[in-house]
Amino acid sequence: MNVTRGFTGRPRVDNPGLPPGQYDAGDDWPVLSAEVTPDLAPADWTFRIDGLVERPRTWDWEQAHALPASAYEGDIHCVTSWSKFGVRFGGVSLDAFLDEVRPQAAATHVVAYSHTGYTTNLPLADLTGGRAWIAFAYDGAPLAPEHGGPARLLVPHLYFWKSAKWIAGLRLLDHDEPGFWEQNGYHARGNPWEEQRYSGD
């Protein structure tokens, strides 16, 4: 352990919800997208799932909202070290979408892509079982464009770069393909509890 002379740090809080190396950002919600925030109206938004599925399909705004509503209340964790507690997202469970397209047995991984062309890769298992959503609302209001509105992927148990903003679709694959940050040195899975920040962690 390399102790830094004279460094004490913030008061210690016994917070079992805080993954290693993270701090509580409080009310802040930093925006870290690398691209220009797109001007995307709900009427122009679509979400598609294809690849290794039985019935590929595209949902528009109305069709996606016709699926059962589902909420996430909990925490989110960004690879740049901030965590945000007690956030409230509204949307639809990804299970509801996947049930309609029926993934094939060979499907193991997913590339999620945005209307900006941003990509991120995930194991399919991280998107099922009530652990992932398409989110339309934050704290009871429409999701702001800079936070991915009108709709973003939400996978709160992984670092937040996996929760692609302005979500456009999922491609199911039988292998892993690195997305944008993953090609720029970031970890393939990004589990905050194992501090999987960078490739090799």
């Binding site: 690398a34 892509y113 900006t116 990509t119 720029n184 960078y198």
Partner: peptide, 23 residues
């Protein structure tokens, strides 16, 4: 990336980062 999304990403990568130095 073998899969290319319908929209080309607005910010194509410039360089790849060495996983060795990043770790």
């Amino acid at each position: 990336t073998a899969f290319t999304p319908p929209t080309r990403f607005a910010v194509p990568g410039r360089i790849a980062v060495s996983s060795g130095t990043a770790t």
